[in-house]
Structures are given as C-alpha cells and as structure tokens.
Amino acid sequence: MTNRAGPGYGRPGPGLDAVTSERGRLINLTYRLLGSLAEAEDAVQETYARWYAMSAQQQDAIESPGAWLTKVAGRICLNMLGSARARRETYVGEWIPEPLPEPGEWIDGRPGGTTVDPADRVTLDESVSMAFLVVLESMTPAERVAFVLHDVFRYSFAEVGEIVGRTPVACRQLAFSARRRVRASQPSAVPAAQQARIVRDFKQAWEARDIYALIGLLDPDATVIADGGGLVVRRQRVEGGEQVARACVDLADRAPSLTILERAVNGRPGLVAQQDGTTAAVLAFDIAGGRIKRIWAIFNPEKLRPWTTG
C-alpha cells in the first residue's frame, strides 16, 4: 500500500511510537466499518495482537507499520461484517448501529466538549451520522469496506483491493454501487442550528405531552425505529406522524419520571432519556424539509453502557 504522510508512516521515531500512534485512526476506521464501538475496539485489539505476535525481525521488515495495520484491520472488519450479517438475521427486532456518546448539551447547534481520551475518540463528521451508518448497514461487506476506505478515508482502489481481495476495477464498481445507495437515501443537508432547534422543540412538546405540537414537528410519514435487542419490550416500529406523536405521549404518561436531555448523538442533535439517573434510551433524528422524518430509538442496554457509565 502507498505510504502516506503523518504519524505512523515512513517509520518516524521509535517503532513502538509509530505503531501506537495509529490507534485513533484505526478506531475511526473500524467504527465506520462495523457500526459498533465495542466491535471496533475488538477489531483494533485483534489488529495489534497480530502485530505483536510477530518477531522483531518481521516487524522491522515492514516498511510502513500504519499501512500494515490498516490492511489487517480492514480484513478483520471484512470478516466480522460477514459474521455480523448472519448474527443480525437472528437479532430480536430491529438492529440499529451503536450510538456514539458525546456528552454536553447543544448550544447554537454546536456540541459541548468531552473528557474522552483523544486516542479513543471517533472523529465526528457526516460519515458517522446515524442516517449514514444505517445506509452502510444496507451494503454488502465488500461494498461497505470499499466505499468507506475509498470515499471516506481516500485510499486508492489498488490499496482497497489488497484488503478486500479484489481487483481495483472490481473495487471501483463496489464503491460506485455503494455511492448510489448513499445518494438515493441522503436528503439535502440541514444546518446544525436548525436541527438543534427542531430537536429542542420536539423535546419540549414531548415533555408537555402536546400531541398537536408533536404532529406539527413530524413529517406525516415519520417513522420511529426502535432497537431493544430483545432485552427491552418495546414496539419495534411506529409509522405515521400522528401515530408517532401519540406513542410519545403514551410513553410520557407511562413513565412520568423520565428525564429528557439534549445531547449530541453521533455528532448530531439528539435526545437521551434517563430513568432514575440511568440512560433508558438514546434517540437520533433524521430531519428534512423542516420536519422530523425518522427517529432511531436505541433501548438495548448493551448498546447504552457507554452512555450510562459516561
């Protein structure tokens, strides 16, 4: 693979530094490939395990540790995506990518700061928005790896081919097919400040149990998709703006002690529902045309552990 400028490439400084400095970049890559922070960390840990399993002589023979780590991490993710598809076919209910915790209220459409170790943070941009990750879930493993590596991380198709085991021409076609899916599903961009305002209005209407205000904020064809993982009994899907509004009011009536907080979810304005100080749900929003078109509600406690402990 082609050498790149930056930490970890061209063997700058001690070999150990060149290898460990790649961790943040690998977490960024593997989270986008897998849609799960826990699985991303497992993939990076396995990548480093394979590096350290080599002898010093084998390590010294590798011209670019960063390129080697990327290649191995990509192949590990490709294998994990294949097995993940089989697991998700037996998953109870809807499967939604694991939401990234980003503490801090949204003020004027900008997220607050965090105390997360920079080496373990996923860089927040459009490629980690929930809407984008959901589209990635519809792709084949090879499409997803080719698209993320080329279109998001700017690797050449020759380099992508080394990871997915296909020719550059085949990788180009994979990325083209994936790109078509993204373009077909992505609405026009909504300014962050406008998103934040709509989510805030939704929160206030929800707390007030104002069904008419909720209906006004929701697209007539709005949908709620809920991920409980079979561990929490919830309706998996609610369709229609009025039905979604009534479901929200019903939930507020059944859980009067529920606290709703404005929080960044995967770098976009979202909401966190807490019960007795424990995160019960994380909500991500898809907004277009000034209205909420889709709400992804994650209830699965296994996916909410970072939000509860953080």
Rank of each mutant, 00 (worst) to 15 (best):
M1L: 09
A5H: 14
A5C: 12
P7G: 02
P7D: 07
Y9H: 15
R11C: 05
G13T: 08
A18V: 05
S21E: 09
R25S: 13
N28A: 02
L29F: 03
T30L: 03
L33H: 00
G35Y: 03
A38C: 00
E39L: 10
E41G: 04
Q45L: 10
W51C: 02
A53N: 04
A56V: 09
I62R: 08
I62V: 11
P65D: 05
A67H: 04
A67Y: 03
W68D: 08
L69Q: 06
A73Q: 10
A73K: 11
A73M: 10
R75E: 15
I76Y: 00
C77H: 07
A84T: 07
R87F: 11
R88L: 15
E102D: 12
G104R: 12
G104Q: 06
R110E: 13
P111D: 02
T115W: 02
T115I: 11
A119Q: 14
D120G: 04
D120V: 02
R121E: 08
L124D: 02
E126T: 08
V134M: 14
E137Y: 01
E143D: 00
F147V: 06
F147N: 00
V148Y: 00
V148T: 00
H150R: 01
V152K: 08
S156A: 07
S156T: 06
A158Q: 13
V164K: 06
Q173W: 07
L174V: 02
A175Y: 03
Q186N: 10
S188E: 15
V190Q: 05
P191I: 02
Q195S: 09
Q195E: 13
I198E: 09
I198D: 08
K203P: 12
W206Y: 15
E207C: 13
E207P: 15
E207F: 11
D221V: 13
I225R: 15
G228F: 04
G228S: 09
G228I: 04
G230W: 13
L231G: 12
R234F: 06
R235D: 15
V238N: 09
V238M: 12
G241T: 09
V244F: 12
A247P: 04
T259S: 14
P269K: 05
G270A: 07
V272A: 13
Q274N: 08
Q274V: 11
T279H: 03
V282F: 15
V282N: 15
L283P: 00
K293A: 09
W307V: 07
T308V: 07
